[in-house]
Amino acid sequence: MYAVALRMCGNREDAQDCMQEAMIRIYRAIATFKGQSSFATWVYRITMNSCLDELRRRKARTSTSLDAMLENGFSPSDETDTPERHSLQAEQRRLLEKAIAALPEDMRSAIVLRDIQGCSYDEIAEVLDTNVGTIKSRISRGRERLRSVLSQQPELFGRHTV
């Protein structure tokens, strides 16, 4: 849950708020959970919705462009001061996180659920309340975008690491 919130919101504080909100919603709604879906899916859905709500609220106030986030002190990950901090992988990760956070929400949510959390297409369709076709298209576009962002830093992503 936290992971989803973090990836969706882009920073720890907002992720915390989202998670709190999600937890409360879960607590309130737990009585009405009838098992139409799996519990995990249900939790994902609630978490995603609270993140999206929070993002929409934030959108009303500030822009979510990458630059703005960078200005506001964007710190997507739990950064501890270790030697790895400056490793290649760490750099790669940071870039990726920024790229994800820069994605439009619909793509971001699909990518987070698919490539980061590893959910199936059906599951994602249920969580996001759309059909699989839409999901696939979002993922496709999202991946394309990510790839293009990453390819702009060839020193990090140019190699054959597959």
């Binding site: 990836r7 790669q92 990726l96």
Partner: peptide
């Protein structure tokens, strides 16, 4: 293209 795509996906998977 393939390279980058795979890298991205792998990285995503390992992100958390």
């Amino acid at each position: 293209l393939l390279n980058q795509a795979m890298q991205a996906v792998t990285l995503c998977a390992e992100l958390n």
